[in-house]
Every structure is written in structure tokens, then in C-alpha cells.
Amino acid sequence: MNMIEVQGLTKKFGDFTAVDGLTFQVAEGEVFGLLGPNGAGKTTTVRMLCCLISRTAGDAHIAGYDLANPADSLKIRKLIGLVPDNIGLYEELSAYENLDYYGKLYECTPDERKTRIEYFLKMMELWEKRDLPISDFSKGMKQKVGIARALIHDPRLLFFDEPTANLDPESARSIREFILQLKKEGKTIFFNTHNLDEAQRVCDRIGILKTRLLAVNTPQQLEKNVWGSRTVIQVEEVSEPVLEAVRRLDPVSLSVEENKINIGINDPTRQNPDFVQAIVAAGGRIQYVTQLNPGLEETYLKIIQ
């Protein structure tokens, strides 16, 4: 079952188009990352999906509920949790009071609130600080409380908008680990980020957004779609007969850099042995054979450009 289904979703602010014709699906239990530069429309997309702002055109369904139907709006908000980019906790209140307040707004019973607040604060190692005002917390600690707030009603779908932005590496790592744990628990997660490394580690699929959705796929498949598969064969010496032997096998692309032969290949598993055999037969002495991975960053930049 798809938790999110979006078809031609568009948002305009006056003459400015923030999001144009988005179409994608997110399956239940999937972690979907939306990558894009600042101003690409990531936050606007999340706000539309969380029923915070209206759409200008297109359709969207969350767990079968229609975003366009005002009667479904409260039902949608009940089953989602949002961790916004500005975490927005009440600085004068304690961590416990902040979570209790949101527990009430999400209509949790007093017992549920008590149990879940204790569970999350202990899990995030903040239980001892539960009565301290939020103003005394570090940014990483506030981010953890913000995540606990989004989880207080045990939502099926979570939206994270830049959850590790401006955090130190240690805090960012603990947030990522927590998100991975939520993934194991089967939560559906929609993840906005421009941290490519984080997206690669956490997300099952990635969408690249720059007002329009430019590409959607798994990180590996995105790379493959952009670059194809490339094999690098390092030989002792690149001679003309060796190159001629490679050319005869009709590679997608071929380039040479010092003693490395860079070959574009459609099906490396099947074709690599042929290339190796041809090079050896032409008198080439092979030192290494490696698969070239440009990485998500290169892929992202290529798509965005």
C-alpha cells in the first residue's frame, strides 16, 4: 500500500511557482528522501502534505485520505508527525511539559502520554533533564525533543525537514541512528535534506527536486541512470593494440587516463570478463579492475544542472 500518492502537485504563490507538477508515491514502511537546493520547494511540499498550506493544482492522498477534502485534513494530521526545520519548542517550558502539551493536542490519553514521554526521553537520554526548561538544552537535545514530540502519538508517517541541519557531527549521527531505528520499526518516513551523504545512508529512494521533480529512484539506480556503469581497468602500459581490442567490443564510452582505461558498459557482470580477456589477449598486463562509482553528490549535481 502507498502511504503517500502525489499526482501533479503544484503550489504557486502569486506568479511564483514554488512546486510544479510533482508526481511520486511513497510505499508504507519506506524512507523517501527529497533532495534539492535551497528554495527548491522541499519545505513547501512537506507543508502541503501536512495540510499546512493548500495546493494550487494536482492531487495528493495520505494513507488514502484526500488532501483536497477539508474533512480529511484532521484525520491526516492525526496520523502524521512533523519535525520542522525550525524545531519550535516552548523555551520556558520543560521537555516534559512540551511533550505533554503536544500529547494533549494529539488527543493521547493521560496514560499514553505518561508512558510515551518516559519512553522517548529515556531512549534519548534526556529523562534526567525532563524538568529543565528547554532554553537550557543544546541544539542537539532540542532536536531530540522535537523528534519525540513528532512521535508522541505514534504516527504512521513522519516528515523530517532538514533534521540534522546545523547540528554537530555527533548529534547528527545520533539523530540519523534514531531515524534508522524508526525505519526498522516500519514507520514511513519522508525526509527533506540537502545532505547527500545522509540521504544515501538513510533513504530507500530519493527524489531530486528543483521546483519540478527531476528524478526519483534508489541512490544506486540514480547513479546508474545518469552515468551508466563504468569499469576502470588499470594496465601496466596502455598500448594501441590493447585499446583496439577494447574498441572492438563496442563499449558505450572509452577514455584513457595515464594507465587507466575507463570503459562505459551496459551490463558489467556479463561484459567485464570479455574486456579483461580481450586486453590480456592483446598483450596487456592487468593490475586492477574496479567499478567506478561517481557517488550521489556527482549524480545530484549532474541532475540539478
Binding site: 501536512c50 484532521l74 512533523l82 520542522p84 525550525n86 524545531i87 493536542l105
Partner: peptide, 14 residues
């Protein structure tokens, strides 16, 4: 100032 309106509006509260 505390930027708490967005999470507040995301709750099932009209």
C-alpha cells in the same frame, strides 16, 4: 519568535 506555530498547526487542532 519561538517558531512554534508550524508544529502547533500540524497537530489535529483547527
Amino acid at each position: 519568535v519561538q517558531k512554534s506555530l508550524e508544529p502547533l498547526l500540524a497537530t489535529p487542532t483547527t
